Computed example of a mutant assay.
Amino acid sequence: MKQPAFDEKGKLKEKILQVEDLQVTFQTFGGVVQAVRGVTFDLHKGETLAIVGESGCGKSVTSNAIMGLIPSPPGKVTNGKVIFKGKNLTAFNKSEFRKIQGVDVSMIFQDPMTALNPTMSIGEQLTEGLRTHHKISKADAKTKAIEMLNLVGISNPHERLKQYPHQFSGGMRQRIVIAISLICEPTLLIADEPTTALDVTIQAQILELFAEIQEKTGVSIILITHDLGVVAKIADRIAVMYAGKIIEIGTKREIFYAPAHPYTKGLLNSVPRLDLLEEELQPIEGTPPDLFAPPTGCAFTARCPYAMEVCSHAYPVETSLFGQHKVDCWLQDERAKGIFS
């Protein structure tokens, strides 16, 4: 079992990442897309923070902004800060980002087959970053690569290093991508939908692997996903994202047992449950708003069964609930108590 991200007094450990009012836009022929609209969150040492939400809500754009992978043009970080180890990453140029990418901050991409180079052996891809950043010998790099393959559960690593991506199954390729992302021992690991293309058995194995690696290395993880089952397995805290904003954040228990935003409750109600065999799934009606011209109020207003007049005119102020739990919703205002349950 991995070490908790909380100390003996129940407080979160030291912060290793602070994202403050992050805003990212994309210039298109149709206008400016406001993909991320003021995202703020912290990540602590040894913690797994899951960012969940529908496709298109800004999860991957947020992670790419942290990694310095926003293509410019058309993308641009227009406001905010990403503070990592005391440095503001949004002020970095490409050369400065290359010094930390894969070393201090590493990323696991969604599709392992496209993340791996089909023309290079697994051994070459594992040792490339290590030799580039740490300037170690070929023999030492190979030894480290074998250690990493053992860590991620790939048998016969000496022979596997000579093989190519097409010679591995989907689950094995995902393990190799994880090994590549961890070989330089990063402080922060961003996993973008790491189990989406895998069957449930392999998903479970990959999630167990994350927990084991975090226990052994102490790496902090940002997990990007829309799968609440994945979240329930390994997350310490959950940030719920909608229309480019984080609308609710709290511990796993706070989010699952006391959702405070109607969107969060809708996500939980739309997940199949084995203990409610006769109940039908409850989909969230409607579609997300147009981010070419996002609403001035709460972006979920048009889909919310509890919407009030104020919701469409003014964005709700953040409300601090019990413990780590915070939410942006007018229903949590004292004057609206009793409406949402």
Rank of each mutant, 00 (worst) to 15 (best):
Gln18Asn: 10
Asp104His: 09
His133Cys: 13
Glu14Ser: 14
Asp290Leu: 06
Cys57Arg: 00
Gly250Val: 00
Thr187Asp: 13
Gly129Glu: 04
Gln174Lys: 06
Leu130Glu: 00
Lys76Ile: 09
Thr251Phe: 08
Val240Cys: 09
Gly123Ile: 13
Pro194Arg: 00
Leu198Ile: 06
Val77Ser: 04
Leu189Gly: 03
Asp227Met: 06
Gly38Leu: 06
Gln34Pro: 07
Ser121Gln: 08
Met67Asp: 03
Val219Arg: 02
Tyr315Ser: 10
His158Asp: 15
Asp328Ser: 15
Glu318Ser: 11
Glu309Gly: 11
Phe322Gln: 15
Leu149Tyr: 09
Thr119Arg: 14
Asp236Arg: 04
Ile146Cys: 12
Ile206Cys: 05
Ala243Trp: 05
Thr287Arg: 14
Ile100Ser: 01
Lys81Thr: 08
Asp236Thr: 08
Gln332Ala: 13
Gln205Ala: 11
Ile221Lys: 04
Ile247Arg: 00
Ala235Asn: 07
Glu279Val: 15
Ala211Trp: 08
Val200Pro: 06
Asp199Ser: 06
Ala336Ser: 13
Gly38Gln: 03
Glu20Asn: 10
Glu278Tyr: 14
His226Val: 04
Arg253Gly: 12
Val200His: 10
Leu209Pro: 02
Ala239Met: 07
Leu182Met: 15
Leu274Met: 13
Arg273Phe: 10
Leu228Tyr: 08
Leu182Ile: 10
Lys138Gln: 14
Lys233Val: 10
Gln18Lys: 13
Ile221Cys: 07
Pro73Trp: 10
Gly229Phe: 08
Ala50Cys: 12
Leu209Ile: 07
Thr296Pro: 06
Phe300Glu: 01
Glu309Asp: 14
Pro157Thr: 12
Gly123Tyr: 12
Ser220Cys: 10
Gly75Tyr: 04
Glu124Phe: 06
Glu14Cys: 11
Ala65Ile: 06
Ile178Thr: 11
Lys233Thr: 11
Pro194Val: 00
Leu223Glu: 03
Ile176Glu: 02
Glu278Met: 15
His325Phe: 08
Leu209Gln: 05
Tyr315Ala: 13
Thr196Lys: 00
Asp227Ser: 14
Met67Thr: 03
Ile206Gln: 00
Asp328Val: 15
Ala197Cys: 07
Phe97Pro: 01
Glu20Tyr: 02
Ile70Tyr: 00
Leu182Val: 09
Gly229Val: 06
Gly102Leu: 01
Arg253Thr: 15
Met172Ser: 02
Ile222Gln: 01
Val39Leu: 03
Leu89Trp: 00
Leu268Arg: 10
Thr196Gly: 01
Val52Asp: 04
Gly75Arg: 03
Thr296Trp: 09
Gly31Ser: 12
Asn269Asp: 14
Gln174Leu: 07
Ser72Lys: 11
Gly286Lys: 08
Phe97Cys: 01
Met148Phe: 14
Gln18Leu: 13
Ile247Phe: 04
Tyr242Ser: 07
Lys99Val: 04
Arg131Gly: 05
Ile51Trp: 03
Cys184Trp: 03
Gly153Ile: 07
Thr132Ser: 14
Arg175Gln: 11
Gly86Lys: 08
Lys162Phe: 14
Gly86Glu: 13
Asn156Trp: 06
Ile83Asn: 05
Tyr306Phe: 11
Tyr306Asp: 07
Ala336Glu: 09
Val33Leu: 11
Pro294Glu: 12
Pro186Met: 14
Gly80Glu: 07
Glu193Asn: 04
Ala314Cys: 13
Lys11Ala: 15
Arg335Trp: 08
Thr90Ala: 06
Phe300Ile: 09
Thr196Pro: 01
Leu207Thr: 13
Gly58Thr: 01
Gly153Trp: 01
Asn150Tyr: 12
Ile224Ser: 03
Leu43Lys: 01
Glu185Trp: 09
Thr62Ala: 08
Leu130Pro: 00
Glu278Gln: 15
Tyr242Ile: 15
